[in-house]
C-alpha cells in the first residue's frame, strides 16, 4: 500500500471558496460528507446509481468516482446550496408537488441531475428526461412521479423566465 500524499486544493463549494487539505486518493463524496454536506449519498459507489450526484462547473458528476483533487479551481454545487436563500429550487418544489420520493435516499441525486438537465435544456421532452435520469436509480417510486416532476419544474422555470 503506497502512502498517500496530502495536497491543498482550492475550489468553490456552494459558492464559497475553500482550501482543503486532502489526500490524493480522497473521493469527492467522502470529502463533502466529512464537511457535513451529507445530502449526496453513497450507494453503488461505481457510477451507476446517481445517488451521489453533485454539480461540478454546472455538470452533474458522480461524487463517488470523482477525485476530490479535481475540484481545484472549480465550482462544486451540492443539494444543500439549492435552498440557501431560504426558498426551494423549482425542481424541489415539483418533487414535493408530485410526491416524487419515498425513502428519499435517491432524491438529492435526482434533484441535482434534474437541475443540471434543466440548466442545459430548459424545454426537454419526456424522452429527454427519461434519458437524463437513466443514470439515476430509484428503487422506491417506479420513476413516473419523478419524470412528471422534472417536466413540471421545467415548465415552471420557463414561465418564470
Amino acid at each position: 500500500m503506497s502512502d498517500t500524499t496530502t495536497t491543498a486544493v482550492t475550489g468553490r463549494i456552494n459558492g464559497r471558496e475553500q482550501t482543503l487539505q486532502i489526500d490524493n486518493a480522497d473521493l469527492l463524496l467522502d470529502v463533502l460528507r466529512d464537511l457535513g454536506l451529507r445530502g449526496a449519498k453513497p450507494s453503488c459507489e461505481m457510477e451507476v446509481c446517481g445517488a451521489c450526484t453533485v454539480q461540478l462547473d454546472g455538470l452533474p458528476v458522480s461524487a463517488c468516482t470523482t477525485l476530490a483533487a479535481e475540484i481545484d479551481g472549480r465550482d462544486v454545487e451540492t443539494i444543500e446550496h439549492l435552498d440557501a436563500d431560504g426558498t426551494l429550487h423549482p425542481v424541489q418544489e415539483a418533487f414535493l408537488r408530485h410526491s416524487a420520493l419515498q425513502c428519499g435516499f435517491c432524491t438529492p441525486g435526482m434533484v441535482m441531475t434534474a437541475k443540471a438537465l434543466l440548466e442545459q435544456d430548459p424545454d426537454p421532452s419526456r424522452e429527454d428526461v427519461v434519458h437524463w435520469l437513466e443514470g439515476s436509480i430509484c428503487r422506491c417510486t417506479g420513476y413516473a412521479t419523478i419524470i412528471d416532476a422534472v417536466l413540471d419544474a421545467a415548465e415552471v422555470m420557463r414561465r418564470a423566465r
Binding site: 460528507r33 424541489q92 414535493l96
Partner: peptide, 21 residues
C-alpha cells in the same frame, strides 16, 4: 386526502438524516 408527505421537505433538501449520516 393526499396531504403532502411530512418528510418531503427534509428529503428534497438532502437534510433528512439517515443512519449513514
Amino acid at each position: 386526502h393526499s396531504v403532502p408527505r411530512v418528510d418531503g421537505p427534509a428529503k428534497v433538501t438532502g437534510r433528512a438524516p439517515y443512519a449513514l449520516d
